[in-house]
Design a protein around this nucleic acid. Structure first.
Lengths: 245, 245
DNA sequence: AAGTGGTCTAGACCACCAT
DNA sequence: TGGTGGTCTAGACCACTTA
């Protein structure tokens, strides 16, 4: 008796449940780190069986939108330092263990979106954006130069002070202060040569080989929220990527 | 009444079913492209409920070991050209669509595993290996130089003739001729500069920036089957990586 | 029409966590 | 001890493919 959804397009019941749950999370009904109601209660609330409710949550778990803890409950995923380190940060020492980067903000400016940037961020050309330049160090040595472009609209009151005062990752700041949860990234990598300015910042000679990473970060419903270009000195570090399983 | 597995270690019933299915597939009981028995029959065979059987297959699908087709059956996954293109081949034209590479084999030699290679391939140093050098072209221009190291033991009769006579991807050859199904890869990327020989092969100047990719390819049970080093001219192409969702 | 996978249900029991 | 998620069952019906 629940098979008929009120929308015109057909879709399985558990997809509809998943959509409503995602909507509630995106709307902030349960904040990151908070527990959802128990499966029994949610199933009753949606008027579906526990099996159907669980199938919906299975997919949210697979997409890392929520996390289950047996005996405790189901929680909205957060950007803990560990999650960043193991999920969105791909630079590791050659033959060593992962380590946390130290970030120094070199520049913070307001500007307007170039046409190419606007297209990637789904903005109109000329829309206001924030431009941030960070220098990341690993093991005390500068390794990564990051240039970020953020839609001003999504980060209303973000200032250099707020940015540098954070005591956690930048994605954690997006999440806690602006309710923006980065879930997915798309990256394009290539090799390039250091120009004079970049070489100086990274302590290299002009013309040294650098790994260039262009990233688009997305939140719920594949909405883009950040553009990032990284230049990496791969003398002592590498980018890793595991595909499958 | 099925809860008790005959092994000492506890594990859910569906994991045991999954393990047996993986074992049968790895043993060649059903070849790639062939259909498994229907879910009803499998459930009866394992003496479990259809739900439990489906949960086991769900995980095999997630790991791309099998593929389901509604109304037709469940099939052991194959390395179709499309699967390679969309799953294991990450070089795309800047701002263009994916295309298939043309491969030319430049060298085929027998040798012995260096210590570092042996460790990555889980061999003993000095074990016999095959060394293959391929030049891959996209849009008629050479873009990628590949150097492969393969354990001789896994590719008994592989010769330059067999390698170059293939009419499909190299992973398809592994699968059809040697029963080796590449499921997962682990890659490390860095930037480097072209030496004289590489520059000549790729039509570049010595010292041009190149993307270096070191890959280990794995089959069932995370057994390594191939070592690969790629040098990519990223003038007109990029490496892409999508994380999440 | 027959057979396959896909969805959904209702309920039992187990493993784990907090108290 | 009570509540949570995790596993397992048995069966009904739907959607899709093939003959």
């Amino acid at each position: 008796m629940n098979q008929l959804s009120d929308t015109a397009a057909f879709s399985p019941l558990y997809k509809e449940v998943k959509r409503r749950l995602t909507g509630s999370i995106a709307a902030g009904e349960w904040r990151p780190g908070e527990a959802l109601p128990s499966e029994t209660r949610l199933a009753q609330g949606f008027n579906v069986s526990i099996g159907t409710l669980r199938k919906a949550i299975d997919e949210l778990v697979a997409e890392r939108i929520v996390v289950r803890h047996q005996g405790r409950g189901t929680f909205v995923a957060t950007h803990s330092a560990n999650r960043l380190l193991f999920h969105f940060f791909h630079i590791v020492p050659r033959g060593g263990d992962k380590q946390y980067p130290d970030t120094a903000t070199l520049a913070f400016r307001r500007g307007r979106a170039e046409p190419a940037e606007a297209a990637k961020l789904q903005l109109a050309p000329g829309d206001p954006v924030l431009r941030v330049r960070n220098l990341l160090s690993l093991g005390g040595r500068p390794v990564i130069l990051d240039d970020l472009v953020l839609p001003q609209r999504l980060f209303q009151d973000l200032s250099e002070k707020i940015l540098t005062a954070r005591d956690n990752t930048i994605y954690h700041l997006y999440q806690t202060r602006y309710g923006i949860n980065v879930l997915r990234t798309s990256e394009r990598l290539s090799a390039t040569l250091a120009d004079a300015q970049t070489a100086k910042l990274l302590g290299l000679k002009k013309g040294a080989p650098l790994l260039e990473i262009k990233r688009i970060a997305y939140t719920y419903h594949s909405a883009p929220v950040e553009l990032r270009r990284s230049l990496v000195d791969t003398t002592g570090h590498e980018y890793f990527s595991d595909i499958g399983k």
